[in-house]
Amino acid sequence: MAEGQHRGYRIYAVTWFWLLVITLLEVAIVLVGVPRAVLVTALVVLALMKAALIMAYFMHLAYERLALVYAVVVPMALLAVVLFAFIGPDALSVHRMR
């Protein structure tokens, strides 16, 4: 509990600020109009950055024991790999056909 007092609320404001910046960036990229492949890659990377910020600071994963971090992050990473293995090749081939 003492640890919480020292940490303060500043980190939440900083996280909030960066989440807003990334969101504005996402909308800006879409409105500006870039090639489809660049758009999709950029949006996925930005979404993952937001997810990491939320999990690390809002959900306190950055302060938890590593065992819990692995228990949460490893299944998610495997899920992402498996989903990409199923969907990715089709997405890329459809993209090439266009």
Partner: peptide, 18 residues
């Protein structure tokens, strides 16, 4: 939703700090 997540984080921090 981002703002409400931030206020939630403050609520949790305040609960820990008493």
């Amino acid at each position: 939703l981002i703002c409400s997540s931030a206020t939630m984080a403050v609520a949790v921090g305040a609960a820990r700090a008493g």
